[in-house]
Design a protein around this nucleic acid. Structure first.
Lengths: 369, 369
DNA sequence: TGCTAAAATGGTAGCACTGTCATTTTTTCT
DNA sequence: AGAAAAAATGACAGTGCTACCATTTTAGCA
């Protein structure tokens, strides 16, 4: 039997009581504890303490704290007072275990480097916060095995729901998500088979529209600058859509440059475009895997006096804020990221049937095409 | 007494079993349940189930799953097999409650819009993940009351530690952090009184160095373009340091433009600079509250053929990746954000004494001064 | 005023684990 | 082979809270 009141706690993480100017005796044994009634120094306050101080039962305290069930005004006040006095912070771990329903929402994203994901998260967060849920997030770094591990880890917190990016997961990850018993939202993409709720837009279609736009503006010698499409699957889908339209019109990319850097996409765009232009002449337009790359390409053009779009047209993807603030706004495809996050979170919480929501996108004709 | 096996669960969040092609009788009552032994359809798998299937005691299963204590190879194998067969996912909520020590780390940040915070988080996450901790994050939107509420909410998950941004908090927030019994790391700033562990750099000093740099390059008619410094306290500290150096040299800002927009900082920089230039002539340098604003200002200059730095010098703060990729790299102050996150997380986990770590910064002389 | 319905309240069994301890089994050493 | 030490194991209380139920108190009404 564990002796109550003498808890250990994680050695590393519980704060050592800092000596306040007062020297601490080092080689001295504990002074004989005051008989049996050690006042349990700074024991963590529990609902029982609050109940006792307020002179009511634990159930009543619980009811007040959760605003559930009916409690008399007088009791409510006593309890609130007692809780405040004791500086009581409810233990949601215990609450979750007892009620078998948590207020945690798991979120798994591929990265937080780009602004895209944070914006989606911001949208998600708005909704979660309003509903009193707390996000538990994991970052997979575009690694599906890491994603699988993260999903398992997050599920072990028994979240009330889970949001993941994209539709591509390992078989085991998919199985876990299917079998975990809570709602699952897959964000960002709708080109594929979803698990439960899917909220995003079609990247394939975005790629198609991009190609149609460039072809409609009579660009024919088009190059592609992107990063690794095996890592960024959605960029791959856009490329696929773009290519399809090209083929349908009897065309092909003049050349393609894949830059491996995942770290700095702007740099990848700069370097990628520089390389492409060095080995190919006669290009009249570049399709970039996203706005970061396109921005890098645009900077390259600015620096080397390549007139955009006369000498070279540029097209990106995402519709980042910054792309409409450059000297010439970039042509791109804008996705409603915040809205996507909100819609996803709302569907997650509202418990409707499994659905696929296409939030669409908007082709933004800037000054670079 | 609650009837076991007949749990309710949150109506909204538990997944409705989708009918698989098979029509579901609608107005039909439950067919008489098979005597007493309802096979508890898809009951959640617990450690007891695993123990039974493996033919061992629960404690042994627990030992295997946590790699703690000694277990025979044969038992280990049986247990692992059983766990895999049953697709068992341990319940960390219960584990946390029982062991009174969690693997959650609370994180409270002011926003996720800017890339700065995500980068710090990436650093933090690297360390947490390696150590098997899960971040629970909250976003305060630069609102200290929201921050207070978030801190309370996060503490109710009884995290093993907590990271917050900045040193300025409400009294109650500070009290909670001091009294919660776990280590606290305050990130990003070291100009002020910390609670426990502080990891960041001096914004006041950054402001000073920026001013010294501009003055050393003989700029004398300096303007300021920033956002609301009452909201972004750290930007305010930089401004304060900058001003101090100006005063020490008998100078003052020619003019200051505060743009309220928190949403798009690049736009704030663009608009802010445009306004400033409209009402003031003779400016030779602009100090921006950060790189986003500076970037906006730079774009304005590019578009309006203002030669940088001949006509106007620009100086920012953060050292964002993009600032070294613009046609002319921006002059700025680079902070080690990823490292900062790593250091903070490491100190949090390693349980040393309260400290203040100055991770410093680097003045990057670009082509805009 | 008495009687019923509704509101308020407290007791207590879980929730799914972990830590401790007692017990059993295996190994090691004379 | 027998004793002692070490390893392996299971039983079970305890973790802080919530759901449920039984009971008490109050309100409503004829």
């Amino acid at each position: 039997m564990r002796k109550p009141g003498q808890k250990k706690g994680s050695a590393a993480l519980s704060r050592p009581r800092a000596p306040k100017g007062e020297k601490v005796p080092v080689a001295e044994a504990d002074p004989a504890p005051p008989s049996q009634v050690a006042p349990a120094a700074n024991k963590v306050v529990t609902i029982t303490d609050v109940a006792q101080r307020a002179g009511v039962g634990e159930s009543t305290v619980s009811r007040v704290l959760r605003n559930k069930g009916s409690v008399s005004q007088s009791a409510r006040h006593k309890i609130l007072k007692a809780a405040a006095d004791l500086n009581y912070v409810p233990n949601r771990i215990a609450g979750t275990l007892a009620s078998m329903s948590s207020r945690l929402i798991g979120i798994v994203v591929p990265s937080v480097g780009n602004t895209v994901v944070p914006e989606v998260l911001a949208g998600v967060n708005t909704v979660l916060e309003a509903a009193g849920f707390q996000p538990v997030i994991g970052v997979s770094n575009y690694d599906s095995l890491r994603e699988e591990a993260l999903i398992e880890s997050i599920l072990s917190w028994r979240p009330a729901g889970i949001l993941v990016a994209g539709l591509e997961h390992t078989d085991r990850a998919r199985a876990m998500l299917k079998g975990c018993g809570v709602r699952v939202v897959e964000l960002l993409d709708i080109d594929g088979e979803g698990i439960d709720i899917v909220v995003g837009s079609s990247h394939r279609m975005a790629g198609r529209k991009s190609a149609e736009h460039l072809l409609a503006h009579n660009y024919r010698n088009i190059g592609y600058v992107g990063h690794d499409v095996r890592v960024d699957i959605r960029a791959g889908k856009r490329l696929e859509g773009f290519r399809a339209v090209m083929h349908e019109n009897g065309l092909n990319f003049v050349d393609e440059e894949f830059h491996p850097s995942m770290a700095s996409s702007v740099e990848a765009g700069r370097i990628g475009l520089a390389r492409l232009l060095k080995r190919q002449s006669g290009l009249d337009a570049i399709y970039f895997s996203n706005d970061d790359l396109a921005l890098g390409g645009y900077f390259h053009c600015l620096e080397h006096d390549i007139s955009v779009p006369r000498d070279l047209a540029l097209f990106g993807y995402n519709g980042l804020e910054i792309t409409r603030l450059t000297p010439q706004p970039l042509s791109t495809i804008r996705t409603p990221r915040i809205a996507m996050g909100k819609v996803g979170a709302n569907l997650l919480l509202s418990g409707g049937p499994s659905t696929v929501v296409d939030v669409g996108f908007e082709l933004v004709v800037g000054a670079t095409t």
